[in-house]
């Protein structure tokens, strides 16, 4: 119980620091998620009309996923040094966007592709233009799967975001890092726990967003 008391004391004393790091983390992952969605969803939709490119892009995003996160952050340093942004927010932000692309693009692509062909046929048959088909039929029916991709990528990036502290992007990784260097498990546990809680909260929020975006006709 001693340890627990120590830990609670630490959290009380260091609360504002912990909250600051949490906010940094949210900012990094949140902003990268917004940009990742803005790129990934339209790209995924576009790829359904360009089979040749689809294969290449999905392959490329799969390869990015297999790069260990620490290595990807590492690669960012020399690249962004060229514009004097080698460490800090920008390279971490970009790396997270790259990581998000596979789940978002793949889910969007698959979801739109898999919309019941009878629906597409009916949509064309009654005289919808391609954009009307997309907006009125294909996207609404694909939303659950697209959102599943978004949720996967955000939850994943909240975890990966903890590694961004290695290239000076801040966030909850800082706490874990300090804990490791100082052999202070209180910091490690606090950081890890905060990351988990963030992931759970983010997933819950996105689940609500998903419910709001999904037509009742597809759920109950």
């Amino acid at each position: 119980m001693n340890w627990l008391n120590d830990w609670i004391t630490y959290i009380t004393i260091d609360l504002s620091h912990i909250l600051n790091l949490t906010m940094e983390h949210v900012e990094l992952v949140g902003l990268s998620a917004i940009v990742a969605i803005a790129i990934g969803v339209p790209l995924g939709i576009y790829l359904t009309t360009n089979e040749a490119l689809a294969g290449t892009v999905l392959q490329a995003t799969s390869i990015i996923m297999t790069i260990p996160s620490i290595a990807l952050f590492g690669i960012m340093i020399p690249v962004f040094s060229l514009i004097n942004q080698g460490i800090g927010f920008v390279p971490a932000f970009i790396a997270l966007i790259l990581y998000s692309q596979l789940p978002i693009i793949r889910n969007t692509y698959t979801a739109i592709k898999n919309v019941n062909p009878d629906l597409k046929d009916a949509a064309i048959g009654i005289g919808m233009k391609p954009i009307q088909r997309l907006v009125r039929v294909e996207i609404p029916n694909a939303i659950p799967i697209i959102m599943a991709g978004v949720r996967t990528s955000v939850v994943m990036n909240i975890g990966i975001g903890a590694i961004a502290s290695f290239i000076g992007a801040g966030g909850l990784g800082v706490l874990i890092n300090q804990g490791i260097t100082r052999s202070d498990e209180k910091l490690i546990v606090t950081g890890a726990l905060a990351v988990s809680v963030l992931a759970i909260i983010a997933d819950a929020i996105l689940w609500i967003v998903q419910k709001l975006l999904t037509s009742r006709g597809l759920t109950d």
Binding site: A122, G125, N141, S215, G217, L218
Partner: peptide, 14 residues
């Protein structure tokens, strides 16, 4: 007017 066997109603619409 176009009617198909699987009715092709849009499940997302009322």
């Amino acid at each position: 007017g176009y009617v198909i066997q699987s009715n092709g109603l849009f499940p997302n619409m009322t």
